[in-house]
Simulated assay, not measured.
Amino acid sequence: MKIRLVNQGIFTPIEDIHSALIPPAEGFYWIDADVDDLEVLQPIFQLHELAVEDCLSEEEQRPKIEIHEGHYFIVINSIRFDDEEIFLRALNIFLGRHYIITVTKQKINELRSLKPILWEEGISRPDYFLYHLTDIVVDNYFLVGDRIEARIESLEEDILMHTKKSHLNEIIGLRSEILWLKKVLNPQTQVIATLNKKDLKLIDDQLQKYFSDIYENAVKIAETFETYRDLMGNLREAYQSSLANRANEIMRVFTALTTIFMPLTFLTGIYGMNFDYIPGMHTHGGSYILLSFMLVLAVGMLYVFRKKDWL
């Protein structure tokens, strides 16, 4: 657990957690904690027991905002896209008048990215801290969306050029993750919409237009992933169509080969019969003549098929 006094974007480490109970003359306290630290934090800051229970739960928490006496409990999801898989990590936030507590189970990159922004903007209020943190989290969804779009385009190109059975597993897996992510985006968008309201006493009214901008971005993200879901459906149809076309190509080649060998088989069948006299049977070099004729016949048929674009 790390306790910092944040004033004008400048961080000052604090050793005694109890000193964070007293509002500072300037700035606010940022407590960056793990879930194990809640045992200490709950009695000191009177954190609601249900909120603490949600933080400790092993089950995946939906994004939400809860209004408790003296503080708000907010859950938003950070996103990562590693090794072609989407990961969501819960970011639990307790917002008070002079403090903000962030509780995570894993490391959240957005918290590290936030520090230079706080210093550059000279932040001295916890609600502005919340705004910039939410803004970074939402912006990362755009970055992940760009990577997913690039993956869809690459997959589409691979399917059109070299269709493989493994492509179907990739399509199904990526589509499932997009559908799962879309379910999370809806409640997260609602959380940001709630932060956009003016009736939250712990959030400055001047932040209204800023949270409104984040809300618009969240709506765009939800619409974008809706489009990705449709694209995955089209990609699956393209895969099935490509397989069908490939099968047709193979059957066309086999049919052409069968057609070419039909007259050759006919000729070998005739000259393989047990008759005493067959025209050309006893001719000197007759076998070479027959083989040459068969070769010319096969090449001629292949030329005709090529010219008619049957092969």
Rank of each mutant, 00 (worst) to 15 (best):
E49Q: 14
L50M: 15
A51S: 15
V52Y: 05
E53Y: 10
E53K: 09
E53R: 07
C55M: 08
E58Y: 15
E59M: 15
P63Q: 03
P63T: 06
I65M: 06
E66Y: 12
E66N: 13
E66I: 13
E66S: 13
H68D: 10
H68N: 13
G70D: 12
G70Y: 06
G70L: 10
Y72P: 04
I74N: 02
I76G: 04
S78H: 13
I79L: 02
I79R: 05
E84G: 07
E85H: 12
E85G: 07
R89L: 09
A90T: 15
L91Y: 03
N92L: 02
N92E: 08
I93Q: 05
F94V: 03
L95C: 01
G96T: 02
I100G: 02
I101E: 00
I101G: 00
T102A: 11
K105R: 08
Q106M: 10
K107F: 09
K107I: 12
S113V: 14
K115N: 13
P116N: 06
I117H: 03
W119T: 12
G122H: 06
S124E: 04
D127Q: 06
F129Y: 06
H132R: 10
L133T: 01
L133R: 00
D135H: 12
I136R: 05
V138G: 03
D139Y: 08
D139V: 07
L143T: 15
L143D: 13
E153C: 06
E153T: 10
L155T: 15
L155C: 13
D158L: 09
D158T: 12
I159N: 00
L160A: 03
L160N: 01
T163V: 07
T163R: 01
T163G: 05
T163L: 04
S166P: 00
H167L: 06
I171D: 05
E177D: 14
E177P: 01
I178E: 02
K182E: 07
V184F: 10
